[in-house]
């Protein structure tokens, strides 16, 4: 497989806390192809962000990658030395954080922060790096780039800051962009602008992207393929179309049902009963079984493997073939 950019196999990232070992990511497998956008969807605490941080190996303490393989362009990232990883971070794989208000250092000007990263990865003079930074500002459509670049983060609006965060991520032309809920903390109109911007830039620069979100609406517009995460595991992975119109995992269906939809008349929004499980002692077997309306005794015994039930459609459900779940989007 030559066009496979990133492949994650059975990744396990645990947090060793006073209360016990939190299994935030417990056997996640994913892959991203060249030029593709993978949507990583799940509730808060499902392990989306930790998966992304694990790729760059910057999981904050006490988090630790305990098992699995991460192959990037065929090379194993988990076997690389720290200084080799520093050359990959920001240059090969870039990260965009959720909250633009906190992801820029408040005490340095934007110019300082961008120039530092550009010069860290590329052999450029200060002046050249500054010109490059101004070009990036133009790329992310910030007005008055020559003036705005000398601003400090507190002088800019949230939407501006997120554009700068995008510019920072793109500063060294990465092959893979990890966007961790890049629009969650923005106003809806700004959200659309940023998404549109990212979509265009991705096409323009030929990058791949992992878009992490809990917002089904966001992935619908951007992602080519979607992996649905639940409690640290992948429960379904398929093309965006399949996930929306032909999901097989009860959790995916529940997620879709919980999204308000103008086209479907409903008295009440349907909620998924219960909350995301405690990850220190997760439910046995399928982690979704305590909340699943299709659960059977076997579901609490056996861990369902991720099986390809039709080409490019993977589901981790023991009853995937028997139960007849239906996407709410297909309801007539």
């Amino acid at each position: 497989m030559t066009n496979e950019l990133l492949k994650i196999e059975n990744l396990k990232t645990y947090f060793d806390t006073w209360a016990g070992v939190v299994k935030a990511v417990d056997g996640v497998s994913l892959n991203v192809k060249q030029g593709e956008t993978l949507g990583l969807v799940g509730e808060s605490g499902s392990g989306k962000s930790v998966t992304a941080l694990s790729i760059l190996r910057i999981v904050p303490r006490p988090g630790k990658i305990v098992d699995g393989r991460i192959l990037y362009k065929g090379e194993s990232l988990l076997e690389k030395k720290e200084n080799e990883m520093q050359k990959i971070r920001g240059k090969e794989i870039a990260y965009i954080f959720q909250d633009p208000a906190t992801s820029l250092n408040p005490v340095f000007s934007i110019a300082d922060q961008l120039v530092e990263i550009i010069r860290h990865h590329q052999n450029l003079s200060k002046q050249e790096a500054l010109e490059r930074a101004i070009d990036l500002f133009k790329l992310v459509e910030i007005p008055d780039p020559e003036v705005k670049i000398w601003n400090y983060p507190h002088q800019l609006s949230g939407g501006m800051k997120q554009r700068i965060a995008v510019a920072r991520a793109l500063s060294c032309q990465p092959s893979l962009l990890l966007a961790d809920e890049p629009t969650t903390n923005l106003d809806v109109t700004i959200q659309a602008q940023i998404l549109e911007l990212m979509k265009n830039l991705k096409k323009k620069l030929g990058m791949s992207m992992i878009l992490i979100t809990h917002d089904m609406g966001v992935v619908a517009g951007v992602a080519d393929r979607i992996s649905v995460l639940y409690a640290g595991r992948v429960c379904e992975s398929a093309s965006a179309r399949t996930i929306f119109y032909n999901p097989k995992h009860p959790y995916t269906v529940a997620l879709l049902t919980a999204v308000p939809n103008l086209a479907i008349k409903r008295e009440k929004l349907k909620v998924i009963p219960g909350t995301i499980p405690n990850l220190i002692e997760p439910p046995s077997g399928c982690r979704f079984h305590p909340r699943c309306e299709y659960a059977q005794p076997a579901c609490s015994q056996e861990v369902p493997p991720l099986v390809e039930i039709e080409p490019e459609h993977y589901v981790a459900c023991l009853r995937a073939k028997e139960i007849d779940v239906k996407s709410p989007l297909r309801a007539e």
Binding site: I58, E82, M85, Q86, T102, S103, V107, F108, I117, H120
Partner: peptide, 30 residues
């Protein structure tokens, strides 16, 4: 050190020393 911008500095590939003694310390000294 718990702030996002520290994680962001790490994610940009800056060395641990730069992250701690430049990005974090300047803020921590306030």
């Amino acid at each position: 050190l718990r702030q996002d911008y520290i994680l962001a500095a790490r994610a940009s590939g800056l060395s641990e020393r730069t992250v701690v003694y430049k990005h974090a310390l300047r803020n921590a000294l306030i």
